[in-house]
Design a protein around this nucleic acid. Structure first.
Lengths: 347, 347
DNA sequence: CTGTTAGCGCATTCAC
DNA sequence: GTGAATGCGCTAACAG
């Protein structure tokens, strides 16, 4: 309730002018030649009255708010947890505070949230909810605020991005299944107006068909267990010959496993499942999920560092980082079930 | 890069004075009797030049930043995910943006983060990282910023709190185990300078001993799987007669399950384990975790609403909400193993 | 070496 | 009904 203590209070206490206090406290006193003795006196005064800089006043004057905005599709998603954490750590380390918004992966919500954030004059945006041709991303750009996209791109290539290896990761997942002997493979794809969803689906079909296999895919409306179960059910019912499924991500994969079980089939004995991301705890599920590991902390860290770099040097050209994925073979994949087919050395 | 468009730009465009624009856009024109026609003209002008209010300027003038600070011990913790989500939703609904900091549950980090946040002039704090006698919480109070504690209290009772039912929840967990026949029960307690850790440990001992059972407990240094495994190991080795363990939370419980397995024992056949919180996915682990469900969204929602209420009415007396816990019986608990003891109807 | 001055964007009190 | 003036807290250009 106590009125905020300002530079004026410190100045009065120290018996100097406000501007002198400002210089002393900001370290500009050294070159400005404020005697060390005066500086310590001011420092002491500041401490005595409990001075804490008001960054609102500072921001208004300098145009630097000390705040970075982070936009995520779903704050409650496990996958984002480590990304957020790593990003927050980097930002804090550079003296920024983090303004966070969760959009529920909805454009209309994002529009409102971002408008509110832009009002707060953040120095940059860390954007993890981009859709292809995203108008909200475009708005941020028009506002002239630096922005780094992570996880997903809006499709423009003049924006810095930090993306998982959607292509290579999908290739590896398919190669793994082909190597196990699967020939008819399904894919529960993510929303197709999201870059990762579109890329993974396209690469999935290309990879399976290049190897002479048969590929089926269906698009989920979101990255949830519910959608995985719903779309997985439709996919499996429509194509009973499928022996393996590549899921858009781990949550969707969990839903697919549920769908398999509801049909009285087993994973992996009857149908194998591969996830994407390797979110926390995937190794504790049953079956432990075979998945493409995406180093989440790496994404958060690199995105934050790229943003800080752009903020500090606005002329910096956009950079594009692809974070490699890694196959984690666990319990949800195995060879397809033996069929009663005439083999070379048949029984 | 385009210079920010301000009220001045709108004023010029609309051919009126800046102050008129301010009034019109803030809805004060209605009582101030600005003709509807003028208002629409101003609105149109604002839209045409792409005006977005600068809340830094507004905050400096009005003392209201439109920002609320949220402090969590670990942003990457599953348990906090839904709390954060619910809180964010409520805050956004009331027009606030959320400044988020993760302290790693360390006081020194919290001190720095909170100082930075206070500088940003948030209208309130949502504090989920309090320790008993927490000096950082005290600092926030001294700064005169409204604060609501959730999950944990600092021990003072003149601050609004939203806490899980630590006492009742622990009683129920112990009662469940006693009912199954357990008589020697262990507890891997949370840090004792955290209210939930201290309360749960005290209640645990009281409840077990009141029933004539034997209680052993050991304090973990943090709420992680690693600590659960480390302290659980020590506890089980020191007291081989333990047939059930109550863990400080679900993550610790997972660690205890690991410790049990490392010893060649089984959960729940040899040793039962009860967690706390019912964080997401606990029902998918093996064994599915029996745990005390704490409705996370409820905590986040209530805490945020309490804070908004205090912000809007600073004279509002502090409120104390206890969110009830609920026993979720799943696969990690069962009756203790049969011993070779002379029973009434012995074999 | 330090005081004076000005102004960032906005809301508000006071004139007219 | 609306323009003019003021100041929130701060930094920076300019005096001296």
């Amino acid at each position: 309730m106590s009125r905020n203590v300002t530079l004026r209070d410190v100045a009065e206490r120290a018996g100097v002018h406000v501007s002198t206090v400002s210089r002393a406290l900001n370290g500009l006193g050294l070159q400005g030649r404020i005697p060390a003795e005066t500086i310590t006196r001011i420092r002491r005064a500041a401490e005595e009255v409990g001075y804490l800089p008001n960054s609102v006043g500072r921001a208004l004057r300098t145009g630097r708010s000390g705040v970075v905005a982070m936009v995520v599709p779903d704050i409650a998603n496990l996958y984002s947890a480590d990304i957020n954490h790593a990003a927050e750590e980097v930002l804090t380390g550079h003296g920024y505070s983090m303004l966070l918004a969760s959009t529920g992966d909805r454009l209309d919500v994002a529009d409102l949230q971002v408008a509110a954030m832009v009002s707060a004059q953040p120095e940059g945006f860390l954007y993890g909810a981009a859709r292809l041709g995203d108008p909200v991303v475009a708005r941020v750009r028009e506002a002239g605020v630096p922005i780094v996209l992570y996880n997903r791109t809006d499709g423009s290539d003049d924006l810095s991005t930090v993306l998982p290896a959607d292509r290579d990761g999908t290739e590896m997942a398919v190669t793994h299944l082909l190597g196990l002997g699967h020939r008819v493979i399904g894919h529960v794809a993510g929303p197709q107006d999201i870059s990762s969803g579109a890329v993974r689906r396209r690469v999935f079909h290309a990879a399976v068909e290049r190897a002479g296999g048969t590929a089926f895919s269906l698009e989920a409306a979101g990255h949830t267990e519910e959608e995985g179960e719903r779309v997985g059910s439709i996919l499996l019912d429509a194509h009973p010959s499928i022996t393996a499924v590549v899921a858009a991500n781990d949550r969707v994969a969990l839903g697919v496993v549920d769908a398999i079980r509801e049909r009285g089939r087993r994973c992996p004995e009857d149908i194998s499942v591969v996830g994407f991301n390797d979110m926390p705890y995937t190794d504790r599920f049953v079956p432990a999920l075979t998945t493409m590991r995406v180093p989440q902390q790496e994404i958060g860290r690199q995105a934050a560092e790229a943003l800080v770099a752009v903020i500090e040097d606005p002329a910096r050209p956009p950079t594009h980082v692809t974070v490699p994925a890694q196959l984690m073979v666990r319990g949800s994949t195995m060879h397809p079930p033996r069929r009663r087919q005439p083999g070379p050395r048949s029984a």
